[in-house]
Computed example of a mutant assay.
Amino acid sequence: MMCHEFMSSKYSKGRFERLAAAFNKLGYNALAFDFSGCGESDNDSLTVEKEIDDLKSDISFTKSKGYKKIDLYGHSLGFLVIQN
């Protein structure tokens, strides 16, 4: 699961697409998502608390699809979010 930096998106200026391709070559699935208020998500205010809630929701969604092992990658603010 890939968490982008502040005011970015799940594409992270192409960075996450390249990382996802590298993870796929190693046999891992990769999920990049937009935090609320960023990219293709709803228009919302940006707070770390909301981003933590977004991440928890995405982890729940991923588990509901049958994934049992979930690794997290965070870039910049995304790293702060996964620390909480």
Score class of each variant (00 low, 15 high):
Met1Thr: 02
Met1Arg: 08
Met2Pro: 02
Cys3Phe: 02
Cys3Ala: 15
His4Trp: 06
Glu5Pro: 14
Glu5Ser: 15
Phe6Pro: 03
Phe6Asp: 04
Met7Gly: 09
Ser8Gly: 13
Ser8Met: 03
Lys10Gly: 11
Tyr11Trp: 05
Tyr11Asn: 13
Ser12Asp: 13
Lys13Trp: 11
Arg15Ala: 09
Phe16Ile: 01
Phe16Asn: 04
Phe16Lys: 02
Leu19Ile: 14
Leu19Ser: 12
Ala20His: 02
Ala21Val: 12
Ala21Trp: 07
Phe23Met: 03
Phe23His: 01
Phe23Tyr: 13
Lys25Gln: 14
Leu26Arg: 12
Leu26Lys: 09
Gly27Thr: 11
Gly27Asp: 08
Tyr28Glu: 01
Tyr28Ala: 11
Tyr28Met: 09
Asn29Leu: 02
Ala30Val: 09
Leu31Asp: 02
Leu31Ala: 08
Leu31Phe: 09
Ala32Gln: 09
Ala32Tyr: 01
Phe35Thr: 02
Ser36Lys: 00
Cys38Ile: 01
Gly39Ala: 06
Ser41His: 05
Ser41Lys: 03
Ser41Gly: 09
Asp42Arg: 08
Asn43Ser: 15
Asp44Asn: 01
Ser45Tyr: 00
Leu46Ser: 03
Leu46Trp: 15
Leu46Glu: 09
Thr47Lys: 03
Val48Lys: 08
Glu51Trp: 02
Glu51Val: 00
Leu55Pro: 02
Asp58Tyr: 12
Ile59Trp: 07
Phe61Ala: 08
Thr62Met: 05
Thr62Tyr: 05
Ser64Glu: 02
Gly66Asp: 00
Gly66Pro: 03
Gly66Gln: 05
Tyr67Glu: 01
Lys68Pro: 04
Lys69Leu: 11
Asp71Glu: 07
Leu72Gly: 09
Tyr73Asp: 10
Gly74Glu: 06
Ser76Gln: 11
Ser76Ala: 13
Gly78Val: 03
Phe79Leu: 14
Phe79Ile: 12
Val81His: 02
Ile82Gly: 05
Gln83Arg: 09
Gln83Met: 15
Asn84Leu: 14
